[in-house]
Write a protein that binds this DNA or RNA. Structure first.
Length: 615
RNA sequence: GCCUCCGUAACUCAGUUUGGUAGAGUGCGUCCUUGGUAAGGACGAAGUCGUGGGUUCAAAUCCCACCGGGGGCUCCA
């Protein structure tokens, strides 16, 4: 926002015939303005200006007016002062806001009509303070872009394919005919354009299954989670947390906002390619975390750590991590501004130990991906000289994956890591998205002053691994829904992994006579199996159809016969056969298949007659 | 952030080209039906046509801006 302030003997303003398309209505008081002894403020509102700019500018005008002893202020919208004007609607409303802000500071105000060509005549007093230009910037906070983000353009890297036999082939020479996903991923990374007009599968499914929805009452990329989605998310969160703690991690919880001025944080911020949310508290500015790195590094830095304690793993489930992605980048569950990420950092004695941990965490990631039943493409990003020293080690990974994987080799270390891997998924629109990732960090021990005492009593810097075993939880759900959406559209039977299914067993009484028996079954399953009863007054066929549409893995029908024998007629998802089972057999089957996973109740009534629709 | 498409009942959508103030299916409610493995039947209620402005005798329909969503660019967990 820019003003040119002129202390004048008088000003006369007359709008001429012409106006821009969005000009304001010409009221009588705007048609001719004649003011004596006033401070005229020519005003240009710039792109990015907001309320703060108005307050700030009003303060400056007040200060200046008092100096020159002016009692009357004339605001004259004059876009030509800037090369970077605000959108017209913003400019108009902020112009009016500035007028009222000035008025509320005790001045008489006039305003020239907005959007009209005007002729004016004025006489500027000659004293030294009569002319003054002021600029306040509304951009100072919105545009904090890290160095790393700016550097992205300059990074040079080359792509290869590493096959399980240890062969490294430049991508251009590799034959992709046996691995479609890898080819799509390669093209995606090397940036060829794709044109799709379809809505991705998961966006339809997350609505159909009442999982999550955008919340227009919040910022973009901040979702509302409905009971079924909350349940799935809770189970995934619990599972990855159990895995990390099971691997020996200590669990902590750290603040979600951090001081911009903190020296270590400021530098780290500049090494990470993300935009931040800013929070103001009194005069201080804080940014919302984009990961748990700071919190855990600050803990590590103040802890007393001996080489005997290493490798030291520290874990937190960040609900939430915040990245203020450009609004156009936010999409469905794939990319959010607020997301849940398990973040584990491992301090290791030396690079050998770091490599060993890296390998273990790689296997944890593989195991998680298979738990949610998704296929993935592995990519490694490697500093070239590090690769040269560790060729065989990388070949081992290719063997573990059993499939060719993409290698990106960079000559200059542009970030804090020397190597990392990612597990990427390919979705229904051929988009590729990273889930799990682990990185070996060689910078931040120094930056955050993290050290351990080695066996000879000296202080040493550890190497640090950053690990997100599952990747963002929302993205896991995205990956599951995309995969099942693709199964569905290719004519298969989509389903959730059993341990994630909101309803695992749906009991359907044939007639009202069996409702009590059905409720009894559901009651017996509580705490072990998520079951509900479709006790609505609908036809049997319709209730079965709806259970199928909800992807319920086990549909248990109970009629006269079953009630008499104490059995259920089970229809397993994917087959239309009927299987007669006792209730205990069914409970055992589901419990056994889900024994390796967490269990949570669904927070909806287990009687469908009492449920309502959230959408 | 930029480009682009979209926004009509709780949901999915028709109606917008050629302006004359709304329709269907699903869901919901009431009643009938009391079922044997993917939609039983009848009746009924329900809409600021995303918001605000403009053009017009008249706007869901034409114009502008804004808000929200999808896709593309860019970017990432």
């Amino acid at each position: 926002m820019i003003t040119l302030c002129l202390h004048t003997d008088y000003i006369r303003i007359r709008p001429v015939e012409k106006a821009i398309p969005n000009a304001e209505m010409l009221t009588d008081e705007l048609k001719s303005i004649d003011v004596d002894e006033c401070l005229v403020a020519f005003l240009a509102v710039e792109d990015g200006d907001g309320r703060d700019s108005v307050e700030h500018m009003a303060g400056l005008i007040e200060e200046h007016a008092k100096k020159v002893n002016a009692k009357v202020i004339v605001i004259y919208p004059y876009v030509h002062l800037t090369q970077n004007p605000a959108p017209i609607a913003d400019a108009y409303s902020l112009t009016k806001e500035l007028e009222s802000a000035v008025k509320s500071r005790g001045f008489n105000t006039f305003r020239a009509p907005f959007g009209w060509y005007k002729s004016f005549e004025l006489k500027v007093k000659g004293h030294p303070l009569s002319e003054l230009s002021k600029r306040v910037s509304g951009k100072e906070e919105g545009e904090l872009i890290s160095q790393s983000l700016k550097q992205e353009d300059e990074i040079k890297s080359e792509f290869y394919i590493l096959t399980p036999d240890g062969m490294l082939t430049p991508v251009d020479e590799y034959d992709f005919s046996n691995d479609k996903d890898l080819e799509i991923f390669k093209n995606y990374e090397i940036k060829k354009s794709r044109v799709y007009e379809r809505v991705p599968e998961h966006i339809k499914l997350m609505k159909e299954h009442e999982i999550a929805q955008p919340e227009p009452g919040s910022d973009v990329g901040n979702l509302k989670w409905l009971p079924k989605g909350r349940l799935i998310k809770k189970l995934l969160e619990k599972h990855v947390t159990d895995m990390c703690i099971g691997s020996g991690a200590v669990e902590v919880e750290t603040p979600i906002m951090y001081d911009f001025q903190h020296p270590a944080l400021e530098k780290y911020l500049n090494r990470f390619p993300a935009r931040q949310y800013i929070v103001k508290s009194d005069k201080k500015k804080y940014f919302l975390r984009f990961a748990a790195c700071f919190g855990q590094f600050l803990i590590s830095s103040s802890s007393q750590i001996s080489y005997r304690n290493l490798p030291l793993r520290m874990y937190e489930l960040t609900r939430y991590s915040f990245r203020r992605e450009q609004s156009g980048e936010v999409a469905g569950l794939r990319r959010l501004r607020a997301f849940t990420m398990p973040d584990m950092h491992t301090l290791t004695v030396d690079l050998n130990s770091a490599k060993e941990e890296f390998g273990k965490q790689f296997e944890m990631c593989q195991s998680f991906m298979s738990d949610i039943d998704i296929s993935y493409v592995v990519a490694f990003r490697i500093l070239r000289e590090w690769y040269e020293q560790n060729r065989e080690w990388y070949a081992e990974f290719a063997k573990k994956v059993g499939k060719p994987m993409l290698i990106e080799m960079f000559d200059k270390r542009y970030a804090y890591f020397i190597t990392k891997f990612e597990f990427n998924v390919v979705d229904s629109l051929d988009k590729c998205t990273a889930l799990s990732t682990v990185q070996i960090d060689v910078e931040n021990a120094e930056r955050f002053n993290i050290s351990y005492v080695s066996s000879d009593g000296s202080k040493k810097r550890p190497y640090i691994l950053h690990a997100s075993i599952s990747g963002a939880i929302e993205r896991d759900i995205y990956a599951v829904l995309e995969k099942q959406g693709m199964v569905k559209s290719s004519g298969g039977v989509p389903m959730f992994p059993l341990w994630l299914a909101p309803t695992q067993v749906r009991v359907i009484p044939v007639s009202a006579d069996q409702v009590d028996y059905a409720r009894g079954i559901v009651h017996n399953m509580r705490g072990k199996v998520r079951a509900d009863v479709d006790d609505r007054n609908e036809s049997l066929g319709k209730r079965i159809r709806e259970a199928e549409k909800e992807w319920v893995p086990y549909i248990a029908v109970v009629g006269k016969e079953e009630a008499a024998k104490g059995t259920v007629a089970v229809r397993k998802r994917g087959s239309r056969e009927q299987l007669s089972m006792t209730v205990d057999e069914l409970i055992t089957e589901v419990s056994e298949k889900t024994a390796m996973y967490p269990y949570e109740e669904l927070s909806l009534s287990n009687q469908l007659s009492k449920r309502f629709s959230f959408i």
